[in-house]
Design a protein around this nucleic acid. Structure first.
Lengths: 235, 235
DNA sequence: ATTTCATAATGACATATATCAATATATTTT
DNA sequence: AAAATATATTGATATATGTCATTATGAAAT
């Protein structure tokens, strides 16, 4: 049985440099077959590293299930948590066709099944399928726009605004619910928001006292999304 | 007479999402001719806006001479100055083939001549020339890597480190000299370094007192690059 | 059940950085 | 040359945020 690579409904706005699987839609039968014969799956436990920054980019990876965090590691400083990946996100990475190195690490935050496709096969699709190339460019561009937003959030906003952005991102884009339970630690949330874990805890407490959110351990509930949006806007 | 679009030696590492002109190298004669018949040049005075964020992306633009700053504008907050563009940089922008809007503004910081190429012609090259498409992807990826570095600099480093990064960028990548005179204001430098202009002035003064740099108005001279690199590293 | 360990929470304090107001210096306009 | 305007500089002060030490809580291991 051939597993579907992606469905119409799977198209994701979320991507690590790379892309959601819309990219696979334009492949012809033969190309799809090529992916299926060469690909292999790997199971990762929560906490395990799927991609290590600096390592060779040999495969394009897409997530079958589970969730992973994308980290910009920075030797002496704290990591920057760029985004959360989940099915149907595809991981391409900016080293693609450049120096074939990884510029981020990707670490499972839940038990995660990932599917590996030889990067040369992927490259071949770009060369032989112009719609595939255009789609890839669009998805790279989408990632750019998101990075711009991240840059704006992290450099122009104060802690309240940055944490609001993180909470809204988790609620809107990742868990798709006003109420969610996360496997992210307070440190992860801090690294997403460019704060210390202590500041995350304090700011969450403030939000809680103001009735904007409710938290209990790893459970979050957004009570006043409008206020959160307002905090995000005001910075 | 047909002006050369780009020379071998012109290949730039600097790009606004888009790319240096290495991208034009793989065009065949016919394609080059197509660019030349459709393109037009515009002269901008220092301070004039070449591209306004939010406007329609109708042309790919490359700089013939002069310099321009790329700004991420953010209604209420201060602008983020992402990078400086100069010949032979090409401006494509992440709205390309997506929503055809501009996500940054580009403003001349010197008198600047820019050349406009219809974006549909550019798109056609991506569709009909797979090497062109691959080159574009590589250049988009290069931009990604630079944005990652920018993100690391702005979010993980303190003022000293951020300003050191800005000074090294201007010296190494833009003016290509330890001594340079810039048309950037202190506010521009502040927007590049995510600081206030007052903090820029104070930090420059400190650097000067420590004999790391010398400044006189718009003239800068880096006296101890090793120390500046060290400050950049330490954050 | 008890110990061990990781994570979370709190408080006191230090520090980086912004803000505001005032003045100085250029640069342009009249 | 004088006035007007933009930019640069400085100082005093406020504020946001990080650091460090301590305790609490919960999960995993024995």
């Amino acid at each position: 049985m051939i597993t579907k690579i992606a469905q119409e409904s799977d198209i994701s706005n979320n991507n690590y440099c790379g892309t959601g699987p819309g990219i696979f839609q334009t492949l012809d039968k033969e190309q799809v077959q090529l992916v299926h014969t060469s690909r292999f799956e790997v199971d990762f436990k929560a906490g395990e590293t799927i991609i290590k920054q600096g390592s060779a980019l040999t495969h394009v990876i897409y997530l079958v299930n589970g969730k992973a965090k994308v980290l910009l590691e920075d030797s002496s400083n704290q990591d920057i948590l760029l985004q959360i990946l989940q099915q149907p996100d595809v991981i391409i990475g900016p080293g693609f066709n450049k120096d074939f190195r990884h510029y981020c690490s990707v670490v499972a935050i839940e038990d995660t099944k990932a599917c590996f496709v030889d990067v040369n096969i992927f490259k071949n699709f770009v060369e032989t399928n112009s719609q595939f190339a255009l789609d890839l460019i669009v998805l790279l561009n989408s990632g750019y726009i998101k990075l711009y937003d991240k840059l704006k959030s992290l450099t122009n906003k104060h802690m309240n605004g940055r944490l609001a952005d993180t909470l809204l991102y988790l609620s809107d884009d990742i868990y798709k619910n006003l109420e969610f339970e996360t496997t992210l630690s307070r440190l992860d949330i801090a690294n997403m928001s460019s704060m210390t874990k202590e500041s995350v805890i304090r700011t969450l407490k403030n939000f809680k006292e103001d009735g904007i959110i409710d938290t209990q351990g790893d459970s979050f509930r957004i009570l006043k999304k409008d206020v959160l949006l307002d905090i995000s806007k005001k910075g």
